[in-house]
Design a protein around this nucleic acid. Structure first.
Length: 435
RNA sequence: GCGGACGUAGCUCAGUAGGUAGAGCGCUAGGUUGUGGUCCUGGAUGUCGUGGGUUCGAGCCCCAUCGUUCGCCCCA
């Protein structure tokens, strides 16, 4: 039986052109994150299973992670996300770290799921977190970074929308005004999360069904349905206007709008699946009609670190996946044409192997990347190879050039050919690389 | 875990009512001396995803399986 050449289900091979794209995407993320002073960190790809169980739930770990027993009998899990690991790292050195902490990483994760559009089993994700800032300056900055990354990829603000909500506001509504208990609240939050995917009448019916008779006497499901339809914070019922979160949301929107992030809006139906978010949550949506969905998001999760039995550290962060981002870039025609790493393909003419090596070594010394042709191949063949490899310049090295120290440099895209000294060749090539 | 679609040369695909496979692109050799992408001429290529079944005979029908893909569940 022949071995399969396919990569493992839901995982990708990165051929050089794919890797080049990934390098581009990561470099944009790094450049923006570092421009805000974020420092890169990383953690092991394997963690004890208990780390993930404590944060999410048994079911998710059982059904959606790669978990196995190591040779020492420990249950370990390939990381499905970064938050538990980074929280562990911060908790471990909590006393010696200098706050606010601005950290980022671009790790790969594994989730045991059925692959589908925008979702694979192995993916990479930019994680941005601020630790130690309790006020909304943290939210402003983190959302600003998310927006700046989109801008750096060339996205127009009209092509994506940043939606905001507050978990505190929702909690206030659900518990104090509607009078629902913890279990009902959790069910309701997950139900609201699915609102836009289901039939509205059915949604309303399920909301209705959640209330027990006693609760219906005091409040009405209609209050919730009305709330979910709001598009502005000013339309909130008076009972909610006084909640501090409303003022926070308003400030946040104003501060971001003031710095040019104008594609931001309040969305009362924005929940984000998991329970550890305790305040502001946000999500970035693709506005393209063919891909109208959430791309990535984040929020505040102040309490998570307390699981390590240390004082809580206020935290705001988000994660941005490479697969959904690539979908976005493709759909909005933002995929760049990337130059290959090699600047020059040296075409050897005649028996010049040794002197050509010297010339090429000089070029490399001066900082250009040079691929050496094969002496055994005809000029034509070497030239074709250079073109097929998408290398921009061909440099002819034959006896004429070696004698005169003037080399024929051919631009393989424009078809122009000029004779230059090596120094000149280097500066031309470097100019192109910068463009 | 559930449902739909798909799986034929390296790639994109065609293959008509079951009778042992084709196109375009690509690849490759040549069109003599140190220059590609156009042109001309020649060439190679597939156990038709895999396993089984029906049939005298299957790429075409049936079952299973693997994979891809779209959606559901879930989405940290």
């Amino acid at each position: 039986m022949a071995l399969s050449t396919q990569p493992y289900k839901g995982a990708r091979d990165f051929y050089p052109e794919d890797k080049r794209l990934q390098k581009y995407i990561f470099s944009v993320m790094r450049r923006v994150a570092e421009s805000y002073g974020y420092e890169e960190y990383d953690a092991p790809i394997l963690e004890l299973t208990e780390l993930f169980v404590s944060k999410t739930s048994d079911e998710i770990v059982d059904e959606q992670t790669y978990t196995f027993i190591d040779r020492g009998g420990r249950s370990v899990t390939i990381r499905p996300e970064m938050t538990p690991s980074v929280t562990r790292m911060v908790a471990a050195k909590r006393q010696q770290l200098v706050y606010p902490l601005r950290w980022y990483s671009i790790p790969n994760f594994w989730r045991y799921e059925r692959p589908q559009r925008g979702r694979l089993r192995e993916f990479w994700q930019l994680n941005i977190d601020v630790f130690g800032v309790a006020d909304i300056q943290a939210e402003v900055e983190v959302i600003e970074v998310a927006d700046a990354i989109m801008q750096a990829f060339g996205a127009k603000r009209s092509s994506y929308t940043i939606k905001l909500n507050s978990r505190k506001l929702i909690d206030k509504l659900i518990k104090d005004i509607l009078g629902l208990d913890q279990v009902q609240a959790s069910t309701l939050i997950h139900l609201i999360d699915k609102l836009h995917k289901m039939d509205y009448a059915e949604f309303a019916g399920q909301v209705e069904g959640l209330f027990n008779p006693a609760q219906r006497d005091k409040s009405s499901p209609q209050q919730l349905l009305d709330f979910l339809k709001l598009t502005s914070l000013d339309e909130l019922p008076t009972a909610l206007q006084s909640v501090g979160s409303v003022e926070e949301l308003k400030q946040l929107i104003k501060l971001l709008t003031d710095i040019g992030v104008t594609n931001i809006e309040f969305d009362p139906s924005l929940m984000r699946g998991f329970d550890y978010y305790n305040d502001i949550v946000f999500e970035v949506f693709d506005n393209h009609p063919d891909n109208n969905r959430s791309m990535f998001g984040g929020g505040r999760y102040d309490g998570l670190i307390a699981q390590f039995d240390v004082e809580p550290v206020p935290t705001v962060g988000f994660g941005m996946g490479d697969v959904t981002l690539a979908n976005f870039l493709e759909l909005h025609e933002l995929m760049p044409v990337l130059n290959v790493e090699a600047d020059i393909f040296a075409i050897l003419i005649g028996d010049v192997y040794k002197p050509a090596q010297k010339v090429i070594a000089e070029l490399r010394e001066m900082g250009v990347n040079v691929v050496m042709g094969s002496v055994s191949q005809k000029t034509e063949k070497q030239l074709k190879t250079a073109v097929k490899k998408n290398i921009r310049y061909a440099l002819f090295i034959g006896n004429k050039e070696l004698d005169s120290e003037q080399f024929v440099l051919r631009n393989l895209a424009s078809n122009s050919e000029e004779k230059h000294s090596l120094q000149r060749v280097v500066s031309i090539v470097k100019d192109f690389r910068k463009s």
